[in-house]
């Protein structure tokens, strides 16, 4: 069952089309991530769901209740939708406890108990209750913002790039904690980000936006392996893109004949492989397969990204390809190597 349904949402700011016919269903209890480059309309969409912006047309419903259509509009304060922005946006004139308790209807000991419970759930020490927002670190501020949003037991939680202001190490830990909290509370969540690795790791459902349009939505692995077009492929990670001739489930390309996930025939198509699908061996003289030379080496510790220049090729001889390998096993620049492929290549739409 779907918790949130967006139907044909359109919004323009002057002549600028911010959202163009966006339709999306968010399953109950899921974590949906909306990902896209800056200016793609993802934050506008999030603010519209929260009730801070209104569309020019389209409708929106949550758990069967229509929040917005051409005749009806539920204001933000009656939607019970939690919202955590990028920097937490804590109320600077209120203590941690007052911030967390802001949305609570209860008073007295019950309220204090609930605040303590929420602080505990986001791993905040009880003695922080009396602290002021400016006395907290970035990670602590985000945890207070999360507890504040969870306090009102929201029907939906919206997270607008909540980890972007945090250090890399802290970011992963926070991501795990938020995912656990949302799962424990059984809250449906939508997270907006422009960080593809964050999107892939956090999402049950991934929606890619570009220039106000929802380009593709589905499970993260599905989108990573089978992006609809070249831009989506490149946005979700490094990709090897090549022209190829497709016939009977095989692609004839610069790497030689490789299997594809497409049964049709095409004289000129574009195929995609992820760099980790290319396997590298030290070439021996006269061995069959696709041969190349390591021309660049980007050592990154546990992994190393090599640039391999092909010695031959059907379409573009001398093509350079990125190849990932274990950092300690990476061959030096100038090594002659042989490439083989793992799994099938994906045929992109034109």
């Amino acid at each position: 069952m779907n918790a949130l349904e967006l139907n044909a949402i359109c919004k323009s700011f002057g002549s600028q089309r911010a959202l163009d016919n966006v339709t999306l269903a968010v399953p109950t209890g899921s974590r949906t991530v909306i990902v896209g480059p800056s200016g793609s309309g993802k934050t506008t969409l999030l603010r519209m769901i929260a009730g801070f912006e209104f569309p020019d047309s389209g409708s929106l419903s949550l758990n069967g209740q229509i929040l917005l259509d051409s005749t009806h509009e539920v204001p933000a304060h009656q939607r019970r939708i939690g919202y955590v922005p990028q920097d937490g946006a804590l109320f600077p004139h209120m203590s941690v406890a007052a911030n967390i308790g802001f949305g609570l209807a209860t008073k007295g000991p019950a309220r204090d108990e609930r605040i303590a419970e929420l602080m505990d759930s986001v791993a905040l020490d009880a003695n922080m209750a009396t602290r002021w927002p400016h006395e907290l670190s970035g990670g602590q501020q985000q945890r207070v913002a999360l507890a504040r949003a969870l306090a009102q037991q929201p029907r939906l939680m919206l997270l607008d790039e909540p980890f972007s202001a945090l250090d890399t190490g802290l970011r992963a830990a926070m991501r795990k904690m938020v995912a656990r909290l949302l799962a424990d509370a059984g809250v449906t969540a939508i997270l907006v980000t422009h960080d593809q690795s964050e999107a892939l790791s956090f999402a049950d459902q991934l929606a890619v936006m570009r220039q106000g349009r929802l380009v593709q939505a589905g499970q993260p692995l599905e989108l990573y392996q089978h992006p609809r077009d070249e831009q989506t492929a490149l946005f979700l990670g490094e990709a090897v893109l090549m022209p190829a001739k497709i016939k009977d489930g095989w692609a004839d390309c610069d790497l030689g004949p490789i299997t594809v996930n497409h049964q049709g025939n095409s004289e000129m198509a574009q195929i995609m492989l992820r760099p980790e699908q290319l396997q590298l061996n030290i070439a021996s003289t006269g061995s069959p397969g696709c041969h190349g030379v390591v021309t660049e080496r980007d050592f990154g510790g546990n992994t190393c990204t090599l640039t391999v220049t092909l010695l031959a090729g059907k379409f573009e001889p001398g093509r350079s390809l990125p190849v990932h390998c274990a950092g300690l096993l990476a061959p030096p620049i100038g090594s002659a190597v042989q490439l083989t492929t793992l799994g099938r290549a994906h045929v992109l739409n034109n």
Partner: peptide, 16 residues
């Protein structure tokens, strides 16, 4: 007082 703070208060059930 950035408008974001007002929005947060509204998302927490306070009228404008």
């Amino acid at each position: 007082a950035p408008v974001e703070l007002e929005n947060i208060a509204r998302s927490l059930g306070r009228s404008p």
